[in-house]
């Protein structure tokens, strides 16, 4: 059986076609990055470019350096060598607040202070846009309301974050990141701990944001099929290196998946979105 190379030449519904062409501009990129913690080097040498207006998804096995790469792109870790550039300037040269106006992050682990209300937490996303004397503005109000409506947490505004369910809480954190209103938004495993319906709901929201507000999204996802369906640009990593990069339809092949994850599989067209769909073979081999 030959690996099914997916052809996107056939006509597909408009909804599923990524409106993605090679962009003229790349605001965020990393050059010759060496990343790691202390003596432990995770990515020895890495070049990465995040196309503007893309929904870029980074995939790869556990420990391949996905999160490390994402964290280096938003200054949470300093590269041991190489540089991250934002708009052509080294990102570490900007004041922290200037970066925070351009680049948002939904971190993997965040702690809600005890008893804080949803509204208060989402409002905190506005911090980079405020000053000591102007701690609130009509724009802040609009941004917070819009973010809460987009994520469907407007009804929860007065509730305490620690009373919410896991899915609701995750959406509150997303709302906080959205309220920051940054052109670039980094998402570190945003769908972890959510049930399948909430995962899809959230991913649909991200796609909507990406399409209709023109924001560049960069996410680390575990589910390869979700990545294939929602990404416009896929980065596959293994052992600290980028193995493949490009539109999912071009990049995702059975060979690639086996090379990255060590998982024998079939790649077929998703009957709904017509994007690649990865089906693990497991131990049951077909005749």
């Amino acid at each position: 059986m030959t690996p099914a190379r997916l052809s996107l030449a056939q006509p597909v519904p408009d909804e599923a076609t990524p409106h993605y062409t090679e962009p003229a501009t790349v605001r965020l990129r990393g050059q010759h990055l060496r990343l790691g913690y202390g003596d432990r080097v995770i990515c020895p040498q890495l070049d990465v470019r995040i196309p503007d207006g893309s929904f870029t998804v980074i995939v790869g096995p556990n420990g391949c350096g996905k999160s490390t790469l994402l964290r280096s792109l938003c200054r949470l870790i300093t590269p041991q060598a190489g540089q991250v550039y934002l708009d052509g300037r080294q990102i570490r040269d900007y004041p922290a607040r200037t970066v925070a106006q351009q680049l948002g992050l939904l971190p993997q682990s965040a702690t809600a202070p005890d008893g804080i209300s949803v509204l208060d937490l989402v409002s905190r996303g506005r911090y980079p846009h405020q000053s000591l004397l102007r701690q609130w503005s009509p724009q802040d109000e609009i941004a917070v309301q819009t973010a809460m409506q987009a994520t469907g947490v407007a009804d929860l505004a007065g509730r305490a974050v620690d009373e919410l369910s896991g899915g609701q809480r995750q959406r509150v954190w997303v709302a906080m990141a959205l309220a920051q209103e940054t052109p670039l938004l980094l998402l570190d495993e945003p769908t972890t701990y959510l049930d399948i319906a909430h995962q899809i709901e959230l991913l649909e929201l991200f796609r909507h944001l990406n399409r209709h507000t023109g924001r560049t999204l960069i996410a680390v996802l575990h589910d390869l099929n979700h990545a294939c369906r929602y990404a416009t640009h896929l980065i596959a990593m293994r052992e600290g290196r980028i193995v493949a990069e490009g539109a999912p339809g071009d990049v995702v092949t059975a060979d690639m998946v086996e090379q990255v994850f060590g998982l024998p599989c079939l790649v077929m067209a998703d009957p709904v979105s017509h994007t690649p769909m990865v089906i693990p073979r497991g131990k049951v081999h077909m005749a």
Binding site: Q108, S109, A110, T111, A112, P113, D114, D162, G166, R169, Q170, W173, E189, T192, Y193
Partner: peptide, 12 residues
């Protein structure tokens, strides 16, 4: 580590 640590009912 849970994604978003749920603060316990008891602050203490």
């Amino acid at each position: 580590m849970p994604g978003f640590c749920r603060p316990g009912m008891l602050t203490w």
